[in-house]
């Protein structure tokens, strides 16, 4: 892999905790820093808090303690800050969550017009460009229900990219897909990574993790057990729990 130049830290997560109302401790004293252009892969067993971590980053869940600073903006009680941060982060969900009552093009255009106040024509040309990039240019007038899972997820990626986010969050973006469609979505993600997008990906695709990630985090029970470069992590895991997990899924 060619050497990438990383920038300064764009996300600082310091000692955050998240306990759900039902008493489940999803995150405990969780700290990590993420640099610009870095691709971080988060892995861990089911229920270890991977999704919760991503959802705390863009304010879908509130943290109980600790701090998150995104590009100099603290994610605090100030609604304006929270909105600003959400608008700089794109998120891709396991279940796509496209807007079913809108065409593919409208899905990608909507937020540009509402959030970035782009004119209809600018928004449309940006959307067409992105849809071409993810390979959906000939389906722009279709509704999500008329697309395959892989196509829907690629539209969802284009929709998130439309706001030109500084960071992209992927929460098991390929887990709901049939095996033959996983590749097409991973390819889009790889392209993004090579273009220098800052990405945090929760995934079970270890091949992808090995190939594109700059840093791998293994978490269990709401904590980071181990973090390292892909090479270190996969060839020489230090912790017993990591070894156990890797043995289990390899």
């Amino acid at each position: 892999m060619t050497e990438k130049k990383f920038g300064d830290y764009i996300i600082n997560v310091d000692n955050i905790c998240k306990t759900f109302p039902n008493g489940v401790k999803a995150l405990c004293n969780f700290s990590t820093n993420i640099r610009r252009a870095e691709v971080v892969v988060v892995i861990g067993p089911s229920g270890s808090g991977k999704s919760t971590f991503l959802r705390c980053l863009n304010g879908l869940e509130e943290i109980d303690s600790g701090s998150i600073i995104f590009d100099g903006i603290p994610l605090d009680d100030d609604k304006k800050n929270r909105l600003k941060i959400r608008r700089e982060m794109g998120m891709v969900f396991q279940s796509f969550n496209l807007f079913p009552h809108m065409t593919v093009l409208e899905n990608v255009t909507l937020a540009q017009q509402l959030v970035r106040k782009s004119s209809a024509s600018v928004a449309k040309s940006v959307s067409m460009e992105l849809l071409e990039k993810v390979g959906i240019q000939d389906k722009v007038a279709s509704y999500p229900a008329q697309l395959s899972g892989g196509q829907q997820q690629r539209v969802a990626i284009a929709r998130a990219l439309a706001l030109k986010p500084k960071v992209m969050l992927f929460d098991e973006a390929t887990s709901a897909l049939d095996p033959e469609m996983i590749g097409e979505v991973l390819d889009v993600m790889k392209t993004l990574a090579n273009e220098g997008m800052t990405m945090i990906c929760v995934t079970h695709e270890l091949g992808f993790a090995r190939e594109v990630s700059d840093w791998v985090i293994f978490m269990d029970e709401g904590r980071i057990i181990e973090g390292g470069t892909a090479e270190e992590f996969f060839s020489a895991p230090k912790e017993e729990r990591t070894k156990g997990f890797l043995n289990q899924i390899l």
């Binding site: 863009n58 959400r86 794109g90 998120m91 807007f99 706001l163």
Partner: peptide, 9 residues
């Protein structure tokens, strides 16, 4: 969640 993540009010 998707519309929240896109920064809609």
């Amino acid at each position: 969640e998707a519309s929240h993540a896109l920064g809609l009010t």
